[in-house]
Design a protein around this nucleic acid. Structure first.
Lengths: 231, 231
DNA sequence: TTATCCATTTAACAATATTTAACCCGGTTT
DNA sequence: AAACCGGGTTAAATATTGTTAAATGGATAA
């Protein structure tokens, strides 16, 4: 999935910088502006997936900024960062079309969750719906199609086989925790389901046998690990 | 624009009734349920544009309800009505995929604004408004006319065929939950209806055979998934 | 009314997918 | 050493789904 680009407009340099750094660590591209006018100029020059606006700012406040931006683009998701939990502000913001607001001080995690929800909903993510192709060793595994291909010949996987293999590949070279896999795939971590999972591990091992650079190791008492040996 | 349909799940009869009446005045259609289990049943039987859930409820709390519904439909907008502004609750709710939450007591106006924002973003109008033309692979499917067209030649579908195909297409690349489909189309999830559905799946598979970029996969124990492979 | 048509359901049987059981082994604890 | 535990392996038992055809039932035409 390609990077999301965010416009942050916040006049407090400390908070602005923290936001920028945190969100970049989390994989966003960001531009930071220090007041509403700068923000508007930036918005006109670049294309963004979402915006974070402070309300009280010099030159142009967040509400005005939003109103101007709504004239350019009436669908871009905007989250307000409000200093106080003033109901007035909240309502005014929502009324003029903010998608969400969050009251300072807020936790970065909460901001991130709200941001992701909004992006998910905004259709910005429609790009990612293609087929999940994964490669390891000489295998090509398409989870949505449930097909495992090895040098030309293709095996059809069952639902559970495909789900387990997907988790293993997603955790390639890391330990896939037993109880996590059981909860995700079997919805319940119980003795019999655990034995069932062992049976499926055996099946997958058989399928992966042709390529000896790929193996499923057991991590005693913890889970399994799919490893890929590179030459 | 046709009416939006909302599912309200709230165990306080007073609040529930007020919500229902207010939102109906504002032009929504609403169904009101009194606990999580009722809510889940209702959700399987009807098609909604958005949901409002209380968190603390008898039989099944709002979090559990959301988790179950997210398995059926990972995009339906959900707003939590939380009794307290506990950060814990908020974060947990957002983490499992709530789109928003609002703390009691709240003003109806704020709720309405949040609801409208979410609906605007959700592309909810796709559900049942204008033309029911759907495309997948090389097929064109018109639900209202019950016509399936493939490269020029057209097949007329029966009622049940068309309804099932519609649900599959609406959930393209996602799993269509068996019991949801049974409740929506057959109005009742029972053994024989389930077998009947299997028969219809077979019929649809035959019709879709000409285009091998489109397939109906079975997700064992859960339902079916229509997938579309892109080149 | 009866005959006929067609969508849908029910039935019967086949094929798969998944779970459970039984027995094995190696390592660890008592 | 004996008992135990986590896991490996295989096969039988169950559950779920696939497939086909016959039975049902509602609507319509004769």
């Amino acid at each position: 999935m390609s990077k999301y680009k965010l416009l942050i407009v916040e006049d407090d340099p400390n908070l602005g910088q923290i936001l920028k750094e945190y969100l970049e660590i989390k994989g966003f591209e960001t531009d930071l502006c220090r007041d509403g006018e700068e923000g508007l100029e930036a918005y006109k020059k670049e294309e963004y997936h979402a915006c974070l606006f402070d309300i009280m700012m010099p030159k142009m406040d967040g509400f005005t900024l939003l109103e101007k931006i709504r004239k350019i683009d009436r669908d871009i998701p905007v989250i307000f960062l409000t200093a106080k939990s003033m109901k007035e502000d909240t309502l005014h913001g929502l009324r003029i079309g903010a998608d969400d607001y969050i009251t300072k001080p807020f936790s970065m995690e909460e901001l991130l969750l709200r941001l992701n929800n909004i992006l998910k909903r905004s259709g910005a993510s429609e790009i990612e719906s293609g087929s999940d192709e994964m490669k390891f060793g000489d295998f090509e595994f398409d989870y949505t199609q449930r097909m495992l291909n090895f040098k030309g010949n293709t095996t059809k996987l069952t639902t559970k086989e495909a789900e387990l293999l997907k988790l293993l590949v997603q955790n390639k070279n890391k330990t896939l925790d037993r109880s996590m896999a059981l909860n995700r795939i079997w919805k319940d971590d119980s003795y019999f389901n655990a034995r069932s999972m062992d049976v499926y591990i055996a099946k997958l091992r058989k399928m992966l046998k042709p390529d000896d650079t790929v193996q499923i190791l057991t991590v005693h008492g913890e889970g399994f690990k799919l490893i890929e040996l590179k030459e």
